[in-house]
Design a binder for these strands. Sequence first.
DNA 1: GCGCTCTAATGGCTTATGCAACCACTGGGA
DNA 2: TCCCAGTGGTTGCATAAGCCATTAGAGCGC
Lengths: 152, 152
Amino acid sequence: MTATDPVLTALAQGWYALSSLYGRIEAHIERALQAGHGLSVREYSLLNTLSRQHDGEGGHLQMKQVADAVVLSQSATTRLVTRLEDRGLLSRYLCPTDRRGIYTNVSEAGFRLLAEARPTHDAALREALDDAAKNPELAPLVEAVESLHVPA
Amino acid sequence: MTATDPVLTALAQGWYALSSLYGRIEAHIERALQAGHGLSVREYSLLNTLSRQHDGEGGHLQMKQVADAVVLSQSATTRLVTRLEDRGLLSRYLCPTDRRGIYTNVSEAGFRLLAEARPTHDAALREALDDAAKNPELAPLVEAVESLHVPA
DNA sequence: GCGCTCTAATGGCTTATGCAACCACTGGGA
DNA sequence: TCCCAGTGGTTGCATAAGCCATTAGAGCGC
């Protein structure tokens, strides 16, 4: 098992490419969003997620589900939401049927900021992907990401 | 531009899947490595990178290249390497041809720890991928990662 | 020899994160 | 009605990261 199992090694290479690609894109978008709108990638992602959930039928998310959506611990999610609430980008309210749960509403300012930041975000994403595509190790993954046109 | 450009939106979905997948795998491996060997994902990744570079012909990495490989700032890299050096897992030495540069050698203990941790790492990776594959949003990307058998 | 640039380390400060302990509320029993 | 296990959220503490400025040692061109 200490000897390099070829299958596992191939997987590890895939994982290495994935994390490298993620890191590069994240760093690039982070700089762009931070400079242009004072938002971190996570904050943008959270706002985006919450805004879409709200637009939907009636499925507001509890904090726990939010934490899962942005892949953060519950405590980190609490603080992330608190930060955005303090900035007036969203508000919390108690779930009416179960007062342990907490829902959120993105405010007008939140939607506005999100709309402003979206072009920045998408452009930075585009740039980061193009840049990564130059690296032969990452190119296949880049292609995979680009072809992920979720039809549903 | 504020209206959702379909191409960019598709890209953003791909990016969302990528970062979600990354986050899940990272968290899963982190827990496994931390519990079993007192290593963080970054520390493991650094050790792994350095050990492989050393095994190669003669291409030892300078700190700057290391920073790029693990996608960290230079100061963070310095500290990461320092931590591992303090734990006796590697040692630094001056690059003989350009004494500004600094190379590293993974120690016996470093190789041993890496060898011990590798099965844990690979198993956790396998689990995380299998788990993610259950999610239809992530499944295609999982497949892409799995098929990244870098031939060269 | 003299500056200019480059690589790395370091200290100071701010921020974000995870874990674990803790509080608030719910939904059963007894 | 009271108690209690389980769940959702928040807070205390420790750690790691980024940024910035600064220092130190080397290479390099003039």
